[in-house]
Each structure stands twice: as structure tokens, then as C-alpha cells.
Amino acid sequence: MRQMSQVARSSAGDPMTPHPVMIRRIIWENDDTFTLTIDPSDEMEGYQFLPGQFNMVYVYGIGEAAISISSNPSRTGTLDHTIHRVGTVTTALAQKKRGDMIGLRGPYGSSWPIDIARGKDVCIVSGGIGLAPLRPVIYTLLAERAAYGRIIVLYGGRSPLDLLYRVELEKWANEHNIEVLVTVDRGDSSWKGHIGVVTALFSYIKLDARATVAYVCGPEIMMKYTLNELDRRGLAPDQVYLSMERNMKCAIGICGHCQFGPTFICKEGPVYPLPRVRALLDRKEL
């Protein structure tokens, strides 16, 4: 399942050296999350990524952060990264403008196994920024919509203003026959949608347990409760995939910062089949 893309390593062959890339656009999705669109450099010609993979994004003089790629894998010429401003590097990225240069190396990590979902239903469960690594999955499914059965997207956010990709969510539901259910932790009187945790949305859907593949990404505790719901509905563990997050540094399996039990998330992950990590999820302080 692990499929490393090859391309955007340093032209000098050093996997730790970032390419300089130019920021084409910054779109603020909400108060603290933005989508950074970059133009790959000439050195990155032929750059390709798979849904679920990430890049190391470097702010010169500040440092690097591992950021999932959130754009359409079939679209060449630009790359999107949706970034939650929470630390030094992401705060520095948030202060960048169109035309500024940053560094980038990647893509790294495993990808969502989309081919196994052909002819089946797909249930995508995400929370918060977790929708970003799954957006390339949705684009890929839509490129061959007829090859898949039902596509269900369950998405939870903190509040209506915190939701990502609101225009696209509506478009996916209205124009692409995707069952999109969105919920927020708290809303005001203008919000007519669901309020509650993302797992509560399972009450409103019926899954064909034998013919559904689930992709899950969000805060780890959200994923644990989501796995319980999928289990209650009879999905076998080998039909479930999830994306894990740990602190990444080298992204090439050397430094050990992202060790998760016997695996390094930067190399074997971030996307894992559930049986590979099920026992680790219940282990304390891992």
C-alpha cells in the first residue's frame, strides 16, 4: 500500500534539501486555517503526489513542518496545502504573501488506497483539519465517479465558521452525488445543520458493511470513536484506513521523531490500514 513518490527530492539528490518555491495564493478558510497555493519550481518538473501524502514545508530561517497536500493530484502546475496556524512554522507561513519564497521537499509517506474502493461504497470520516488530506481522495473519486458506489462524507468542525471548503462541500453534495453530512460542536441561531460530534452522524446513514471502504482522518480520539462506530456497523478492520499524526522532522525515516510503536509514520504512514495500528491506538503514552 505504501507508495512513495519519487520526484521532488533535491536536484542535488539530497533528500533533506528543500526546493525553493513561490507562493501563488493564500486563501483563508477560517480565522486560523489557510490554504497555501504554490508554484512548483522548474527543478520539480514531473512532480506527482498521491492522495494522503505530505510535503515538508520550510520557512527560511524558521524551520520545517509536515503538511498534507490538499489539492487535486491530477492537477499539475500548482500544489495546495491547507494549514492550521498553531506553531512557530505555521504562524510564519501565515504571514507570507503572494510572491514570497518558501522551501519544499516531498512528497512523502503512504497514500490512501483508492483502487481497492472500485465498485464499492466509500465512507470518508474527517474532523477539523483532517478533511485536508482527504480532499485529494474526493477529487480522485470524482474523476471516475461511476467507478464507485455511494460516496459518503461525514465531516465535523468546531463551529460553522471553522468549517473548511464550505463551497466545495456544497458542490460535492449538489453536483456530484456525494452524501455530505456536516456537523459542528456548537452553533448559533443561523446554523441550520447538525450540531454534535462527527460520530453522531452515523445515525443518519446506513452502510453496507461488506461493500464499504472507510477512510478516516482527524484528531486521534475522534478516530478512535469513529472506529467504534464502524465496528458497530460491521465493517471489517481491513476495510478501514486512517491517517496518523506525529511530530515529523526528517520525513525519511531516520530521525525517529515520528516513531509510533514499531513504525515510523513518515515512512510507513501517515496512512495505515487499521489492522496495522489497531493495537497501538489503545496503548497509553504512545
Binding site: I83, T90, G128, I129, E220, S243, M244, M248, I265
Partner: peptide
Amino acid sequence: QLLDLYGTTASGVGA
């Protein structure tokens, strides 16, 4: 809901 799950995770990889 009380955990305010979505407020603290970083930036994309995994969440």
C-alpha cells in the same frame, strides 16, 4: 465535545 478536539492539532499530516 468538551474536549474541543479540533482546536489544537497542527497542520495536515493525520490531522
